[in-house]
Structures are given as C-alpha cells and as structure tokens.
Simulated scan of single mutants.
Amino acid sequence: MVPLTDAQRIGLGLVGFGIFFILFGVLLYFDSVLLAFGNILFLCGLVFIIGFRRTFTFFFQRPKLKGSSFFLGGVVIVLMRWPLLGMLLEAYGFVTLSRSVFFPVAFGYLGTLGSIPLLSKVGAGEG
C-alpha cells in the first residue's frame, strides 16, 4: 500500500465529497448549487492530492488544451447556473482529457478479464 501524506488524505476526502455532491446534484435533476459545490471540492481535492504545479501542468499541456478548456469551461458554466450545459461540456472535456491516459489502461485491464475462470465461461456462452 502506498503511504499517503496528510495533505493527500485531505485531498482524497475532498475528491470523495466532490464526487458525492456531483452525483447527488445529478440525481436531484441537475441542482446547480450541488454541482458547483461538487466541482469546487473535486478540483481542490485534486490540487491537494497531486499538488498545484502538477495539476496546472496536467490541465495546460499543449495536447490537452482542448479537453481542459471544455472541462474548466463546463465548471465555469455550472458556476453561472447553467448546470445541464456545463455538465455536458465537463463530460466531453473529461473524455477528451482521459482519452490518452485512462482508456488504454482500462481497455487493457478489460482484456485481462478473460483469464478469470468464471468470467471466461460467461463470455464463451457456457453455462
């Protein structure tokens, strides 16, 4: 297990509460206050976990500027109380940002699921 500093633990808590408020805001028909609060908590938690400099360099790398602008623009739109449009922009920005990092890892992991005995039987159609 990776040891965490106190700031990283605080960041994990902030990210967790941010995700909770975002999900709760979506469940309550895109409540703009909950979504805005969740966005702020999520971004603050990200800064606490990886640091301000790494967060800044993550969002403002040359190949990621399109995704960053959509994601951060969506946060601003949510803060201006247009929650549906803001969340759509954020979702597109998140997909664009994580296309080069998250999806190859996730699909590589899904490829290894065939080696699990029970799942390989389900995938082959045996029952």
Rank of each mutant, 00 (worst) to 15 (best):
L72R: 10
G16V: 08
L118T: 05
L4M: 00
L88E: 09
V101N: 14
I40D: 12
V101P: 15
F59M: 03
G123A: 13
F71E: 05
S100G: 09
P63Y: 06
R81H: 08
L97K: 12
S32R: 12
L85P: 00
L23K: 10
L28C: 04
G18E: 00
V101I: 12
Q8V: 02
M80T: 04
P83K: 00
F37D: 13
F42Q: 14
Y109T: 08
F37G: 13
P63E: 09
F60Q: 04
G114D: 14
L88R: 09
F94C: 12
F21E: 08
L46F: 09
G25T: 04
M87E: 14
T57N: 02
I40N: 10
V122N: 03
G38Y: 02
R62M: 10
L14D: 02
F48A: 07
V78N: 01
L41K: 04
V15M: 10
F17R: 03
G73K: 08
F42E: 13
L89F: 09
P63W: 04
F21L: 15
V47S: 03
F30W: 11
F107R: 14
I19Y: 15
F42C: 11
Q61W: 04
R53Y: 00
L97H: 13
G74M: 07
D6S: 08
K121D: 12
V78T: 12
F20M: 03
T55H: 04
L65S: 01
L119R: 05
F37M: 15
C44D: 13
G108D: 11
G18L: 01
I77Q: 06
L23E: 05
T55N: 03
G111T: 00
V15P: 09
L12K: 07
K66Y: 00
G86P: 12
L12V: 14
P104F: 09
Y92H: 08
A91M: 01
L89T: 10
W82E: 04
L85Q: 02
G45R: 07
L85K: 02
V101D: 14
F52I: 14
I19G: 15
G13M: 14
F94H: 11
D6N: 08
G11W: 01
L43A: 10
V76Y: 09
I19K: 15
F37C: 11
L46H: 06
R99H: 08
L43D: 10
F102W: 15
F59C: 03
L119T: 15
L88G: 10
